[in-house]
């Protein structure tokens, strides 16, 4: 039964990866990568159960953490072009600086 869950997750992962390849904008790709990170995390847990070795769960937690931090880092880089920027100038006034990211 865990096998079928693993197959379903692999199919979903394929879909997310196709979207990451196709995605017209950088945000589509980031979104797809974020989703595939979640799916990979679930896949790790399911494979751990399938093999009767739930040790993999630690790795799944690490994967989830790095997934979020990585997503936010990518977004911040594309929004400000600088990872350490405090971004004090609040909300929407960042459009000009975002242009300089390229």
């Amino acid at each position: 039964m865990f096998e079928s869950a693993v197959i379903a997750l692999l199919l979903a992962l394929t879909g997310a990866l196709v979207r990451a390849l196709l995605g017209p904008t950088i945000f589509d790709r980031t979104q797809a990568v974020n989703s595939s990170g979640t799916l990979a995390m679930l896949l790790l847990a399911a494979i751990g159960f399938m093999n009767g070795r739930p040790d993999f769960l630690d790795i799944a937690i690490i994967y989830g953490l790095l997934n979020v931090i990585g997503t936010i880092a990518v977004l911040k880089f594309f929004q400000y072009g600088d990872l350490g920027d405090p971004g004090n100038n609040a909300d929407d006034s960042d459009n000009e600086t975002a242009g300089s990211a390229k």
């Binding site: 931090i69 936010i72 920027d85 405090p86």
Partner: peptide, 19 residues
């Protein structure tokens, strides 16, 4: 790596000077 990731996360949100 995880501890460094936590600190980097802090820097991403609150800015490098604070970190």
């Amino acid at each position: 790596v995880i501890v460094a990731a936590a600190i980097i996360f802090h820097a991403l949100i609150y800015g490098l000077p604070l970190t």
